[in-house]
């Protein structure tokens, strides 16, 4: 037991995490490519045309995984942030910082595909649908996190302040989601629901799952690449970085 704790804390130091991350990145990229190709092939060529929505519905193969990832990444980010605050491990803060841009990208992608889907379906680029609105607010939360971290010069303070914001955000996300949903039903009654495809075919589900896995792998690979860059930047004056870069 004691052995394993020591083992894990070893990777909490930037110096040992850097090469580990480097070894993992190609695998995640490869997995992202394989899942992505398989997912896209199923979603474009195998999945049947939807009876009500025609071909346009295929955008959900990007939209739904992107929405999932955007929410999940915020949770992971808050987890690392909380860990960093509690245990004072440096890599945790760096992980949180590295995840934020990918999370924001996913939220933006979800909003963009939502708008592209909305135009043919609802005849409007933007509809105040509960999910889209929540996604927009989530996007704002990501922007706030990144802006706060960017505005603070001392990386240690930036990590801690960002961590508190991420934790406050994670408490608020369910409240925000619930309130937006409440607001939506009060004002519009039941609107068309973006993500509820009527009786989803088995192949559609497969396509979506594969795409979700591809997004996962992509996000992990991106976060690891970014965390390596952050480690190099923050530790640029240490001996081991000078050796690693040579």
């Amino acid at each position: 037991m004691r052995q394993s704790i020591v083992h894990w804390f070893k990777f909490a130091s930037p110096q040992s995490f850097y090469p580990l991350a480097g070894r993992m990145i190609p695998w995640f990229w490869a997995a992202a490519a394989i899942f992505g190709i398989a997912g896209l092939w199923i979603s474009f060529f195998v999945a049947p045309t939807d009876a009500q929505q025609g071909e346009g519905y295929r955008i959900i193969f990007v939209h739904v995984p992107a929405s999932w990832m955007s929410m999940f990444i915020y949770l992971v980010m808050a987890f690392w942030a909380g860990l960093g605050l509690a245990l004072n491990t440096r890599v945790s803060g760096m992980m949180a910082q590295a995840l934020a841009p990918t999370g924001a990208l996913m939220a933006a992608l979800s909003l963009l595909t939502g708008a592209l889907w909305g135009k043919p379906m609802w005849g409007a680029w933007w509809v105040w649908d509960a999910r889209l609105t929540s996604e927009l607010i989530l996007f704002f939360l990501y922007l706030g996190f990144m802006a706060l971290q960017a505005a603070i010069d001392d990386p240690r303070r930036a990590d801690k302040a960002g961590a508190i914001l991420a934790l406050v955000g994670v408490v608020n996300i369910p409240i925000i989601y619930f309130s937006v949903k409440w607001w939506n039903t009060l004002h519009q009654g039941s609107t068309i629901n973006l993500n509820k495809a009527p009786s989803m075919a088995q192949t559609m589900l497969w396509g979506m799952m594969l795409m979700a896995l591809a997004f996962w792998m992509y996000s992990i690979a991106m976060a690891l690449m970014r965390v390596r860059a952050i480690i190099l930047e923050r530790e640029r004056h240490t001996e081991w970085v000078k050796h690693a870069v040579e």
């Binding site: 802006a147 706060l148 409240i175």
Partner: peptide, 10 residues
């Protein structure tokens, strides 16, 4: 404003 306004929504 950027940090607080989204949290004010509920």
């Amino acid at each position: 404003a950027l940090l607080v306004l989204p949290l004010y929504i509920p």
